[in-house]
Design a protein around this nucleic acid. Structure first.
Lengths: 139, 139
DNA sequence: ACAACGTCTGAGCAACCATTCATATATAGT
DNA sequence: ACTATATATGAATGGTTGCTCAGACGTTGT
């Protein structure tokens, strides 16, 4: 079966109907599709690649068990790094690394008081997403 | 328990999640916590380890860009493997592998007609989750 | 000034993961 | 029976990731 880039093939498929060989890759794809109209419809509805990537990155950020615990802990009140480490039972270094990622993804923010960094949720929409995932898990 | 080396202490804390309640709390918090009462509160609210793991596994299933595209394509109508491969522009083998994972996670199901396998969403709650993640991405 | 502390960060490592390739299974058409 | 097709699957591989370790930075207290 063909494993070549389909994006190329699909785009040029309509224009290559006049092209010579029946073994053309573009035609193979059209032939391989069992339901071309359903495919075209689904492709039209498919969100753009960059939106998929950012949504995927956001979900990935929440999907990790450590980060999910961190966010769950922060859902009620702000906490500093060593407190968070104590809550989820991990080294402060590991927590700091994860908080860095959450910060980069604009999921959390922090304020510094002396040498203590207090982290908080930046978007409380995350809490509802986590809760719905937890509900889905407990059913 | 007396004073353990740092890594030792953290490992036992993470593995003894079953005995969260009264005893280990003192060990973990004694040394490093800045705000013991906030930590105790957050620990009490923290969802159980197994729920976190299943929720995490579910979110991870949706977080992957390829699987997100697959689920997005399936949100409107059922599609067979080669159609899905054409929609998202990937080999049928890769798609089959991912569908296997989605099947194992009870996110999709399929019916077979001859040699064609038609996949569909098993839980349409997934669609709203994806949409909310996409909205979050596009803002 | 000095030491203790809270946090951050780079390097290294082990585990995981998504894809490809090759192959297997099963059904359809001839 | 034989061939082509649709899907499934195991092994291998390149890439990613989460943790630990060691050390750096800035702040606080003495």
């Amino acid at each position: 079966m063909s494993v070549l880039p389909y994006t190329e093939k699909m785009r040029t498929a309509s224009q290559e109907s006049a092209v010579h060989d029946a073994n053309t890759q573009a035609d193979v794809c059209e032939v391989n599709c069992v339901h071309p109209e359903a495919v075209a419809q689904a492709r039209a509805r498919l969100p753009h690649g960059e939106d998929v990537d950012t949504a995927s990155a956001f979900l990935k950020l929440v999907a990790d068990p450590t980060r999910l615990k961190l966010l769950s802990a922060l859902s009620t009140c702000e906490l500093c790094v060593c407190d968070l480490a104590a809550v989820i039972g991990l080294s402060e270094s590991a927590v700091s690394h994860q908080l860095r990622l959450l910060r980069a993804g604009r999921v959390v923010a922090f304020r510094k008081v002396g040498r203590v960094a207090y982290y908080r949720l930046l978007d409380h929409h995350v809490t509802t997403l986590i809760d719905s995932a937890l509900d889905h898990a407990r059913e």
